[in-house]
Design a protein around this nucleic acid. Structure first.
Length: 210
DNA sequence: CCACCGATTGCT
DNA sequence: GCAATCGGTGGT
């Protein structure tokens, strides 16, 4: 059974600092079902989060923050609830939400969403395929939302980029699996996805269980 | 200064 | 199965 999009994306309250200031694994799971929104000059973009990955920072060899602070990962060492945007493979911008508190690195990679608002704009930007697949991967989210390194450091608790409460996903509807595309700490169960969603990354079916 | 490589995607 | 494409990072 496929989870349907929320009825009114931005009617639920915007999530504040306390929601984000937790450990990345807890945050990653709790972000499922929440609604990411971005008010741009070209229109409102919004998506229901259906797939996330936790990166626990200093204790996680796969985290960009593992080897200590650098110019690129500085945001991860700051307060929770900020955008950590990184550029990879020479062409993709990926979006994370920082976790923990200042001085303690940690973040959640937003891997996939079900489109809620701004579908025409997303298609105008060149995305093809069925609606459910428009945001089915971290690189697709970056392109569809028009994210660049200029968005790095944005505060999710105020301004055009934010997360609305939406509807949390019950534990029985969450699939836990290994993270995708990494070469270190490959066995950690830090990937979370909404079971049955056609918008998760990859071929669109449920992720392989551990 | 230079070489390597990646939290990906889409085409062959 | 693999090319595209480039900034960050770390070593020389």
């Amino acid at each position: 059974m496929t989870a349907n999009r929320v009825g009114a994306p931005l009617t639920s309250p915007r999530l504040g600092r306390a929601f984000f200031a937790r450990d990345p694994v807890t945050l990653a799971r709790d972000l499922l079902g929440r609604v990411l929104f971005y008010r741009t000059a070209e229109g409102l973009l919004a998506g229901r989060i259906v797939e996330t990955e936790a990166y626990t920072g200093a204790t996680d060899p796969a985290s960009h923050a593992f080897r200590g602070p650098t110019a690129r990962n500085a945001v991860m060492f700051g307060p929770a609830g900020h955008a950590y945007v990184y550029f990879t493979y020479g062409m993709h911008h990926c979006l994370n939400i920082t976790a923990e508190r200042a001085g303690q690195p940690g973040a959640v990679l937003l891997r996939a969403m079900e489109p809620v608002s701004g579908i025409a704009l997303i298609r105008a930007r060149g995305d093809r395929g069925p609606e459910a697949r428009l945001l089915s991967g971290p690189g697709k989210i970056g392109r569809a939302f028009g994210l660049t390194l200029a968005d790095n450091g944005r505060d999710f608790t105020r301004g055009p980029l934010g997360v609305a409460a939406g509807s949390p996903i019950p534990g029985r509807a969450v699939a836990v699996s290994r993270r995708i595309g990494i070469s270190r700490a490959v066995d950690l169960p830090y990937r979370f996805a909404v079971i049955g969603s056609r918008s998760v990354s990859g071929r669109g079916s449920d992720p392989d269980p551990l």
